[in-house]
Design a protein around this nucleic acid. Sequence first.
RNA 1: GCCACCGUAGCUCAGCUGGUAGAGCAACUGAUUUGUAAUCAGUCGGUCGGAGGUUCGAGUCCUCUCGGUGGCUCCA
Length: 648
Amino acid sequence: MRNIKIKLPDNSYKNMTIGTTPQQVADSIGPGLARAVVVAKIDGVLKDLNFSIENDCSLELFTGDSVEGHDTLLHSTAHLMAQAVKDLFPEALVTIGPTIENGFYYDFDVDIPFTDEVIQNIENRMKELARSSQEISRMEISASDAIKMFDDMGESYKVEIIKEIDPNDIISAYTQTSFTDLCRGPHVSNTSKIKYFKLLSTSGAYWRGDENNKMLQRIYGTVFSTKDALKTHLHNLEEAKKRDHRKLGKELNLFAFDEEVGPGLPLWLPNGTVMIEELERLAKQTEKKAGFDQVRTPHLTKGTIYERSGHLEHYKDSMYPEMSIDGADYYVKPMNCPHHHKIFSAIPRSYRDMPVRLSEYGTCYRYEKSGQLFGLMRVRSLQMNDAHIYCSADQFKEEFINVCKMYLEYFELFDIKKYTMRLSLHDKKHLGDKYVDEPELWLETEQWVREALDEGGFNYVEVPGEAAFYGPKIDVQVWSAIGKEFTLATNQVDFVVPERFDLSYKDKNGNQQTPICIHRAPLSTHERFIGFLIEHFGGNFPLWLAPVQVAVLPVSEKVNDYAKNITNKLIDHDIRAMLDDRSDKVGAKIRKAEINRINVMLIVGPKEQENNTVSVRRKFSGDLGTVDQDILLSTLVNEIKDRSLTHS
RNA sequence: GCCACCGUAGCUCAGCUGGUAGAGCAACUGAUUUGUAAUCAGUCGGUCGGAGGUUCGAGUCCUCUCGGUGGCUCCA
């Protein structure tokens, strides 16, 4: 029999007989690798471990802790789960089961609800199937044969999927005893390779993500190559929950929801109000420097304005219903744009005024469907970090770049490193319904934005079909502690509405021109931004943002007066200080301050009183020794003024 | 809005298959006067989310409803 030469990643060669498999190569290297290997790459292409190697090639072997290996494990575990579901509920129909970050899911069409007990049974059945060491084999057939095969099995969803493929195309399917599933692969070669998995949650999910389709039942799960890795992952999920802004919001008395007030309508407690006001102070300072003017507009407005803007047509369902007053329909405002347009047109504008930048943190109300509400991240009463920039075509690029720069400046201030900038474009299929029917303007504006982004040197990805109805937009995506994705900053180009509102300015030649409008919200809604910051900092806010900045802790009642004096002095310097003059021991006072995540603790006793000093303890840093009162004061004042993330 | 799950004192939770509620922390009151993550003792606190129903009897079972959680869909 002919031999073939297999090149390994360390540049060594193995001579094997033709038809050998990656698993056999692993066997020849060592028993540890033979056990751990899950998938192989042959000449750069992922292959199953029982793939028959016919030619000289390069070979890489992947264990379950590599990216490739983990993805294969996840995929195979999804199949194992589907097999278990079909075992327990033969009438269930399988649909799709992809992998996601650190996990997988599979959607089933089945009548019985997947309760916790059912999930446990499925998981138990999976363990049995895994232990029974079933061979997993690949077959390749034409799409037309595959249709027949899945049709015979009654798997109508699979048939629907394959029908969209060219009938002559060769597709692959994988079989483990009684269970066969359409899949591109690769897969592990035996169910016994799947050991450390867990089913995590269930949910409903529309077939093909369309709410007009049937709702299927989804099961989420995960798998790892070692017991420790699974344990660590589950532990991380638990740890992330501790950073959940809803939990911290309650613990730190930041905000509350009340049944009698209504869902999605947050009440800002004093501690949370401090934070939201600090955020607004930051925004106002930043915008003042950037040439924005603050404006104010009413919460109620006649419906005709939203007809003109087009919002009523596009978003009526998510606006609070109209109220009839003196024969006119009024709405609570869901956004500020139309009012800002009216402010623009309230006075005649010349090219000398441009660009006009109007900013307002107006409170808006949106009727978000009940299922969309999520802590502070998705609410029904919200303050947008809103502004509209009206500029000429030749000012557009610079204005747009400056807006993007502003939110990156904010991100740096808050040490936000993980984010994605997304350029959301229109989808020409939906011109006239989802998007205004201006095909050329769309393309032209999108190109402007692209050029502005390139010129500004920003990294971004393009996403078709995600634009606003009136123009392309930039969204900056971030992730919450519990892994949910959110849009934080956003800015949009509007090439439609200025015209609808007859906005104009006189150019140098005395001609009327229509300005371009940029909508921007770099700090998102203040609710969402605070919610995000709570999770981002895990409640451990930088000094400038902390609701309580300093706790003064007298050692005994004998020094309460001295402690009171220090507290007052701090307050005089605009530092948020509180005095804990209860009759607890210092240890208890410190513990309470630490639990409330207070940055600075000043411990004072007779020694400090005598020398006019304080003993400083900082969260995470512990005892920092004794400092003169005035030195401490200037240190804190500077740290706050600089909005510093760390302390000296 | 859709699917599933959850809802017991301010908070975290216990309460087996139906027999009229319990702990820790917090709060409050005393005592203690304290040196870098919990001083001791006592007191208060719940019509078990709400409304119907089944039952001799419901926190526990059923129906509806409100609120929340995990997702799906949506997000100007």
